[in-house]
Design a protein around this nucleic acid. Sequence first.
DNA 1: GAGCATGTGAGAACTGTTGTCGACTGCGGG
DNA 2: CCCGCAGTCGACAACAGTTCTCACATGCTC
Lengths: 136, 136
Amino acid sequence: MIRNTRQRTAVNAVFDELEGFHSAQEVHARMRAAGDSIGLSTVYRAVQALVEDGELDSIRTDAGEAIYRRCSARHHHHLVCRACGRTEEVEGPTVERWADRVAAEHGFVDVTHSLEIFGTCAACHRAGAPSADRPG
Amino acid sequence: MIRNTRQRTAVNAVFDELEGFHSAQEVHARMRAAGDSIGLSTVYRAVQALVEDGELDSIRTDAGEAIYRRCSARHHHHLVCRACGRTEEVEGPTVERWADRVAAEHGFVDVTHSLEIFGTCAACHRAGAPSADRPG
DNA sequence: GAGCATGTGAGAACTGTTGTCGACTGCGGG
DNA sequence: CCCGCAGTCGACAACAGTTCTCACATGCTC
């Protein structure tokens, strides 16, 4: 049975007040700072549960850290600035259809996909942010 | 000054023989197994240098591990069976153009993207493989 | 070949994450 | 309302991947 605990509720609530992506550690620190007594393990368990429930959306930073945010109902992808980390949601039926079609052509079923776009946002580009090229 | 050492050359050479993505640790193990004496730190340094030189391409797995491969002339994506792990390379100008366009519309420059498609391949589907959904 | 900046490598340190385990507590039943 | 107990908590240890350290080795320039 899945219980409705103070901690779980609290973690969930944090993401109501927060925009964008935040790491488990950050959430933990934020809660502790706010006087909320909660363990780090619990935060990790909570965010994982929330991701499974589809409440949160998770991606991994370039540094390998997992970051989370409230998931909007729509299926979408992320456009991430590699200099300042700013994230924008983008969506496009084009790519959805393409992915499904390609998978189907190869005989794959039950298809999902993950797509992230990285670049340097206008502000950072103006600021002359360095950019590590990443062809691929 | 950047020196041309035996180790650096050797790491680079490994990726000539290897297809697809491989972790630094795997490369290290492989080299040791082949009787090549090299330290793990050195492998890390080497792959990082190679990435900076544009010789290698790096992405991060879901588990947070960094994996590398020779940057192929062709840009393509992966279609991965979530049951047996079989991977097929797919490519499509559609999605490339879409990603670039979307990024440009948001004022992003110097754009790259990462896309993986997950599904159950025909063989595994016939075998009745289970599947874990991952919205996002 | 000499000098020396740069690279190497074993191991320690660090970071983010997951596991452990005794104590705790929501929740359904009585 | 209280009981019982399975699900949960949380401090801490354990882990994995990566980076740092530093004494030693070695390519490169002269």
